[in-house]
């Protein structure tokens, strides 16, 4: 993200969105402890759960990408290395978010 003001806004808003989602996930982990494979699978095939899990992954990866960008800018001073590192982080974020969405969709349908 080039514009630093937008960057900050997105970082703050994504943080706001993740908080309730994380609470919900920790709550779900507590409720589901000791559950079998089938129970876990069924939990994921519930559209409500699937939607919020997908939202969690997308927003979390956005937040992660924005946060790591700041850290890389702080510590990697060589401009070429810097943009390469940020680019690879972005690509990794898209790939992993893609895997998460793909998995969730598989269980949903």
């Amino acid at each position: 993200m080039k514009n630093v003001v937008t960057h900050r806004k997105f970082q703050r808003y994504s943080a706001l969105a993740i908080s309730p989602l994380s609470i919900w996930i920790v709550y779900s982990i507590i409720c589901m402890k000791g559950s079998s494979f089938q129970e876990t699978y069924n939990w994921f095939s519930n559209p409500f759960n699937a939607f919020f899990m997908a939202a969690f992954f997308i927003i979390s990866f956005l937040h992660l990408k924005l946060g790591l960008q700041i850290i890389i800018e702080d510590y990697v001073h060589n401009l070429k290395h810097r943009s390469l590192t940020i680019l690879s982080i972005n690509i990794a974020c898209y790939i992993f978010a893609g895997i998460a969405i793909f998995s969730i969709l598989t269980m949903l349908f």
């Binding site: 494979f37 876990t40 699978y41 994921f44 899990m53 992954f57 979390s60 990866f61 992660l64 946060g67 790591l68 850290i71 992993f96 978010a97 895997i99 998460a100 793909f102 998995s103 969730i104 598989t106 269980m107």
Partner: peptide
């Protein structure tokens, strides 16, 4: 900052968890 980076790895692991459940 540390916890942020640590959570980034956690997020990757949770993606793997969801993927393995789907598989």
């Amino acid at each position: 900052r540390f916890t942020g980076v640590f959570l980034a790895f956690g997020l990757l692991l949770s993606v793997i968890f969801v993927f393995f459940t789907a598989m």
